Amino acid sequence: MVINEELLNEVTGGAKASPRLRMNHNFHDRLDAPAQRLLTLLPSCRTGIITLLSALR
C-alpha cells in the first residue's frame, strides 16, 4: 500500500464527515494482527502530511 494523494483524500473526506473529525486507514488485514499499522488523519493536519510526502520523494 502506498500513501498517495488519493488515499489522503479518501481518509481526509472520512475525517471531515466523522463527528470526531478524524479517521483511520488500517494497513493490517485483521484486527488481531500482531503488527497493527495505520494512518490517522485529522483534516487540519493534511497539508503537513502532503508537504512531508513531497519532501520524501
Rank of each mutant, 00 (worst) to 15 (best):
I3F: 08
I3R: 02
N4D: 14
N4M: 06
E5H: 11
E5D: 15
L7H: 05
L8F: 03
L8N: 02
N9H: 07
E10L: 04
E10T: 03
V11A: 05
V11P: 05
V11C: 05
G14L: 03
G14T: 00
A15Y: 05
A17Q: 07
S18W: 05
S18Q: 04
S18I: 00
P19Q: 14
P19M: 09
R20M: 08
R20S: 11
L21R: 14
L21T: 01
M23R: 08
N24Q: 01
N24D: 08
N24V: 00
N26R: 14
F27E: 11
H28V: 09
H28L: 02
R30V: 00
L31S: 12
D32H: 15
A33C: 06
P34R: 05
P34G: 02
P34V: 11
P34A: 13
Q36K: 14
R37T: 04
L38V: 03
L39N: 00
L41D: 03
L42K: 09
P43C: 13
P43H: 03
P43N: 08
P43L: 04
T47Q: 14
T47E: 10
T47Y: 13
T47L: 13
G48H: 06
G48E: 15
I50R: 13
T51W: 09
L52Y: 13
L53I: 07
L53E: 12
L53H: 04
L53G: 07
S54F: 04
S54G: 01
S54H: 10
A55P: 01
A55K: 14
A55R: 06
L56D: 03
L56Q: 14
R57V: 07
R57G: 15
R57K: 13
